[in-house]
Design a protein around this nucleic acid. Structure first.
Lengths: 345, 345
DNA sequence: AGTTCAACTGTAATCGATTGCGTAAAGGTG
DNA sequence: CACCTTTACGCAATCGATTACAGTTGAACT
């Protein structure tokens, strides 16, 4: 397997390995006659470069590592897809790692990627605090950009969305729909995303005079189950507010389900919003109003930053970029469009 | 980056690089004193092996490539997750590639993985026919196992489920629920999975005397949109049968949606079944009756086969294994449990 | 004709870890 | 004490491609 080497091609073509390398990589100069012989020999033998050997020599692997908290979360899945496509255009390959939302596993993955000499790493950190040592240390070794989430106290590039701006849109929309009280169903505050979103939620709620119903924040994880549980808890503890603002679509889907299971109509009695615009938010009953993240843009920016960082090398690691793209609100059926509470099918 | 080499450790410890290698890999023999010095030096310097260099020498990369038709299909996503976990236990890493359901892209990906000297490849082929040359050729170079789908005329290991047995369960269940006619909504027959499922569907339908409604098979792709379109077409062409048997959950979700949009009640008027048991099949309205694939088992078997194949080397590439696991039917609300058509909420 | 220079091509070092072979010292045996 | 094993470790080759450097050739120029 992987048997034919450059030396064999060289022998068959009657030239040196250096020449073969030059012809095949197009660097340096060579006569047309030699080029023909070499290409002929390479084709005959079915030569393919040994990427490993080349990497060792060039200390470049044309490989990027990506670490996400969970591959099964559709949001990350589509982010992975976008990154994969963006990398494809650059002729790079993707090493995918699932950290299973565990900073320790994440740390191992990061170390392992670094040991594999990837050209760069894209990571969506599992934890806003505990992920820090590994992320920071890895970032000191090679180009690293954080995606979506950000670890406090790290100095790396970051690409994500402006959560505060997004929440402003969400709250304005809910307010238009008549909401005068709202609850935020988030995940643990240890994710920068939920924290930012909550901050945006709270600020705009205050400005719009929307009552934040349970004062204590609801903390769980990014899952359907947690959405269901949170709603059950709210109902048990005194009823639902006019609106449920969820930190992501999975939670929102669970929340919607629980509302209906408990006999509350969505959006007539309770409005529900999600975040991410995963594919299934469109298919839910009712279709979910949510915040659409420009995933392709995010991925493209991340790849671009990595490429830039690779060029700059350790030379002048300039100031790090924090790119916040503005997401768009996607209004569907889980919220009320008009101020007058009107039911729509 | 990746600066400290084995030579530096050797110098600091006052030994040769050979000794450092032996100590760190635990192969060969060495005195306790030397071991201490070497470990000390390695720790002080923060030494990490250069996996690339090691791979070149060992011609092993501890890396497995996986190619799937689409990362965004939740079924493949969870398959990827399972494989990732199974590999983690073996200390191997996963190279993930998305073929975007295009055999040409798939071929490029396979070639690229082979060039990267992965230890093995797990592929779920995009096309039952067009994927053949690339799959076959790659399989001749290195261990390869096909997952879920199978390319006709290739000789490689395969792990998947017994589609025919699964369809038998589905049809029996639908028959119990009173279905006397049914349509199969599949994807293009160029996927072995849809073909097998259709075969199972047709055979059991015949045995149970269930009328196969439109004689021509409905062909599209594995997507929600296609499910919606197929139902629209059925309605336009003369109405719906008692049951819609879909080749996967995405199609089933789309079909269910379309049924309801056109005013047909599921499962009262039309029963719908899916295949794969993706997470959202549980969340749909009504929750989808579907076939659960034992993903972890599938992944584990695939990884096991690869490991075995790596050991065997080209030596005696014995007969190839075809492992068909038996999936289980998951009955939910999109079908009728009892013969008497009874509505349930 | 003698130089000069550009165009080609080959030699060999290099990337970093691994490992077969060789050897010196330590330990064992009769 | 001579001789044979082990044990412990270093030397140097090796994996395959790339590339700095040097050498060769022939054309162009003075």
């Amino acid at each position: 397997m992987q048997r034919v080497t450059i030396a064999q091609v060289a022998e068959r073509a009657g030239v040196s390995t250096a020449t073969v390398s030059r012809v095949l990589s197009g660097r340096g100069q060579f006569s047309a006659a030699v080029e023909r012989k070499v290409r002929r020999a390479a084709d005959d033998l079915g030569y393919q470069v040994n990427v490993i050997a080349r990497s060792l020599r060039n200390s470049r692997t044309d490989t990027v590592g990506m670490v996400v908290p969970s591959i099964t979360n559709p949001f990350f899945t589509s982010l992975v897809e976008s990154v994969e496509h963006a990398l494809g255009k650059e002729g790079k390959e993707l090493f995918l790692c699932d950290a299973r939302s565990d900073p320790r596993i994440e740390a191992r993955r990061l170390a392992s990627l670094a040991a594999r000499n990837v050209d760069g790493i894209i990571v969506s950190p599992s934890h806003g605090v505990d992920s820090r040592p590994a992320v920071q240390q890895t970032a000191e070794q090679l180009p690293l950009v954080q995606l979506d989430r950000f670890v406090d106290g790290t100095t790396t590039d970051w690409v994500g969305v402006d959560d505060v701006a997004a929440m402003r849109q969400v709250m304005d929309h809910l307010h238009d729909g008549g909401a005068r009280s709202a609850a935020y169903i988030g995940s643990l505050m240890t994710h920068s995303s939920t924290e930012q979103r909550f901050a945006g939620f709270r600020r705009r709620a205050e400005e719009l005079n929307i009552e934040v119903k349970p004062h204590e924040v609801l903390l769980g994880d990014y899952s359907v189950e947690w959405g269901e549980e949170a709603v059950a808890r709210l109902i048990a503890e005194g009823g639902l507010p006019d609106a449920l603002v969820c930190a992501d679509d999975l939670i929102a889907l669970g929340a919607t389900r629980a509302c209906r299971a408990h006999g509350f109509s969505v959006p007539r009695q309770v409005q529900v919003t999600g975040y991410d615009d995963i594919e299934f938010s469109r298919l839910a009953e009712p279709a979910l109003t949510t915040v659409h993240q420009p995933r392709d843009r995010i991925a493209a920016e991340a790849v671009r930053l990595l490429a830039a960082a690779s060029l700059a090398k350790d030379a002048e690691r300039g100031p790090h970029a924090h790119i916040a793209l503005v997401p768009t609100l996607v209004v569907r059926d889980s919220t009320r469009a008009a101020p007058a509470p009107q039911h729509r099918i």
